[in-house]
Simulated scan of single mutants.
Amino acid sequence: MSSILVVTDAWHPQINGVVRSLERTAGELEAIGVKVAFLTPQDFTTLPCPTYPEIRLSLAHRGMVRKRIEAWGCDHLHIATEGPLGLMAASVARKDGIAFTTSYHTRFPEYVSARLPIPLSWSYGWLRRFHNSGQGCMVATRSLEDDLRARGFKNLQRWSRGVDEHLFRPCEGTALPPDLPRPIFMNVGRVAVEKNIEAFLELDLPGSKVVVGDGPQLEALKRKYSDVHFTGAKVGEDLARHYASADVFVFPSLTDTFGNVLLEALACGVPVAAYPVMGPIDVIGETGAGVLSDDLRQACLDALDIPADHCRQLALNYTWAASARQFLANAEAAHDRKRGEKAA
């Protein structure tokens, strides 16, 4: 397999785990001789998603998507998201008999239920039909795989994540105002309701709370929590220095399927405090690099005692090179499955 086309509705200017995962995986695949192309909203006229203006919804029809898929002529088609582009690409692939894989990045039903009174069973039913229509659905963790299998999802494949250990590392000094009282409890990510950030901001903790990121909930939270230091979005070396400035990384999300930010914080030598849910259970588990508890405040306080070098050692077990090889093996397995379907 020498070329892969990735169709994704999640793309720049978004800054999130999906975009970073796709870019890093593509970079590693290119390094081993596999060409990767992307079909994104930037290829079409778009309109902003309601409540999420940085998410662009593509105004394209199936013929336009088919034309681009045919023009690239890649060996494998991977559909990363369940948005307009992903839906049209899957429709084209099914109609034209093209083998394709999908990936399950976000617990979309829980995301929707946080905003609209839509039963989880309806959302999961729709997602199940979408992901089962391909030859493989890639998931990041065992707990997500077990959860989706119990809900009737098929052809599940493991695709873990990695971390840039050269960028995300312990460093001297601080990227934060030097007068912020210690200890510093930090959250990094999209500032949105599904991230459950208020569960962190409501905690009675010593020192300071810091939120790094942007999103639709940012201005409201800044008004409500005037004692919290909000930095806005950070990238690259600046982001890494912010991570390394923290004493504990607090991850209050109940809906993430993995949480790349967990690995980034750990690589910077920062222990994690989180709820014992999907994502933290898979990354932290019983490793001792963080504290998982339904009492998030106590988890934050207990995490202060965890050595930085222990956190970094755990993060070093996750590499983007291994993630890319896993992705490629899944794509090849999907083609084997497609050949078996045709033979039957």
Score class of each variant (00 low, 15 high):
265 A>Y: 10
234 K>H: 13
283 V>C: 11
293 S>K: 07
255 T>L: 14
229 H>Y: 15
296 L>P: 11
295 D>E: 11
297 R>T: 05
279 G>M: 01
285 G>H: 11
281 I>R: 15
288 G>P: 02
283 V>E: 01
258 F>D: 01
222 K>V: 01
223 R>D: 13
259 G>K: 11
258 F>C: 09
224 K>M: 05
245 S>C: 03
251 F>Y: 15
235 V>C: 00
245 S>F: 11
266 L>Q: 04
267 A>F: 04
257 T>P: 08
292 L>T: 10
275 Y>M: 12
215 G>S: 05
239 L>R: 13
258 F>V: 07
238 D>M: 06
268 C>L: 07
279 G>N: 01
280 P>L: 09
256 D>Y: 04
298 Q>E: 14
220 A>N: 06
302 D>W: 05
224 K>I: 02
235 V>I: 04
295 D>P: 15
221 L>G: 09
298 Q>V: 04
217 Q>A: 15
243 Y>L: 08
267 A>Q: 07
288 G>N: 03
265 A>L: 09
230 F>P: 04
291 V>L: 05
221 L>P: 14
228 V>Y: 12
261 V>C: 13
294 D>A: 09
275 Y>D: 00
216 P>Y: 02
273 A>W: 03
274 A>M: 05
233 A>F: 07
255 T>F: 03
286 E>P: 01
285 G>K: 02
241 R>A: 14
227 D>N: 12
286 E>C: 03
252 P>R: 00
269 G>D: 05
295 D>M: 10
299 A>R: 01
223 R>K: 13
271 P>E: 04
270 V>E: 08
285 G>A: 10
237 E>P: 08
301 L>T: 06
215 G>V: 07
222 K>F: 00
259 G>S: 04
276 P>Y: 02
294 D>W: 15
268 C>G: 12
283 V>A: 12
289 A>S: 15
258 F>H: 15
225 Y>R: 00
273 A>H: 09
292 L>C: 10
226 S>Y: 03
240 A>S: 13
218 L>I: 12
242 H>M: 05
232 G>Y: 10
295 D>V: 06
292 L>H: 12
286 E>Q: 11
285 G>S: 00
300 C>L: 11
263 L>H: 15
254 L>Y: 13
279 G>H: 06
295 D>N: 15
248 V>P: 08
261 V>F: 10
287 T>L: 05
264 E>D: 06
288 G>V: 01
227 D>I: 00
276 P>V: 10
231 T>M: 04
286 E>Y: 02
260 N>V: 08
274 A>I: 05
264 E>P: 15
